[in-house]
């Protein structure tokens, strides 16, 4: 095709992307100047350029904090488990929903599992304390009728991380399920017809047609979620944890909150944030590279 013609056709598309680009430059790239805070003894009134340069002191200070190992461990365990569980459950649910005959039931289930996504953790925090209570909570009543001793889900270090992961999955899996359902609908129906002619049963169809058809989206979701490897979920933990489970529930973000917002130690708080971003960058790059190599998936 004539290069000029192609360009002319694409100009409106570029214009459409422009507002998004401008916003990203203003709100994502602009504030990156603030990274400099991580290397300063930052005092707001003296600004980025007036504050004292301390090199890596903030990082050393963070590493000398007594809880830092615990916090890193909690963060990685909670975040990794969330990523893995958050990938498998929605795929399984989407496949099962796809097998449901009635459109109406499908819609109803889809909506009801999507619903918790819209509740904030502030509200859920209050509700969960009640329904997970060992003495009066509805969950423990059910367990009790099955002969299980009451479990203190939010106040027992053995159970807390489990509770965090389960409640998060319950809240968020509906969202991912919808994305996978959309991917399923985009699979070419001719392929199924061909498979039926070849004598493939439902299981074989799922395995050989539906899943491969979803592959790209699954990989994309994995790549995106790997960036969150140090994001254990501030909203959730902050609203669910309590002094009894600090040992298993204190994560990087709650730590940064205490450092930056309560103590106004902007330098160390930014240092932790920068560290988090670097780790995420490495993970995203590696997984993107792998996705390209293994599945031939690439964005550009």
């Amino acid at each position: 095709m004539n290069l000029n013609l192609k360009l002319r056709r694409e100009i409106p598309l570029h214009i459409m992307i422009l507002p998004a680009l401008v916003l990203i430059i203003i709100f994502n790239y602009g504030p990156m100047v603030g990274i400099i805070i991580a290397f300063e003894k930052y005092i707001p009134t003296k600004g980025f350029f007036g504050s004292k340069w301390v090199g890596l002191d903030n990082f050393r200070y963070i590493l000398s904090m007594p809880d830092i190992q615990q916090i890193l461990k909690n963060t990685i365990v909670i975040a990794m488990t969330k990523i893995v569980v958050g990938l498998f459950i929605p795929v399984i649910v989407a496949l099962s929903l796809n097998e449901l005959g009635s459109d109406r039931t499908k819609r109803a289930i889809q909506t009801s599992i999507y619903l918790p996504h819209f509740l904030s953790w502030v509200i859920l925090g209050g509700i969960l304390v009640d329904i997970l209570s060992p003495s009066s909570g509805f969950v423990n009543k059910i367990l009790g009728s099955l002969g299980v001793e009451p479990i203190f889900f939010l106040g027992d270090n053995d159970w807390f991380q489990f509770t965090v992961i389960i409640t998060n999955t319950w809240k968020e899996f509906g969202y991912a399920t919808i994305i996978y359902l959309a991917a399923i609908t985009s699979v070419d129906p001719n392929l199924y017809e061909a498979a039926i002619v070849d004598g493939a049963n439902r299981w074989r169809q799922t395995w050989h047609i539906t899943l491969p058809g979803m592959k790209t989206i699954i990989i994309l979701m994995t790549v995106l979620s790997l960036g969150a490897v140090l994001n254990a979920g501030f909203d959730q933990l902050f609203n669910l944890y309590n002094p009894i489970v600090y040992e298993t529930g204190d994560i990087i973000d709650t730590f940064v909150y205490r450092l930056g917002l309560i103590d106004a130690q902007f330098g160390p708080a930014t240092a932790v944030g920068l560290f988090k971003s670097l780790v995420s960058l490495v993970f995203i790059s590696v997984s993107y590279f792998l996705a390209d190599k293994l599945a031939g998936y690439s964005i550009f």
Binding site: P243, I244, I262, D263, Q265
Partner: peptide, 21 residues
Amino acid sequence: MVTKGSTLEKMEEEMFIRFIM
């Protein structure tokens, strides 16, 4: 107090609640 205060406060709450329990 500014640099270590919140860590110590958090530890105090955690340990005293544990003690009561």
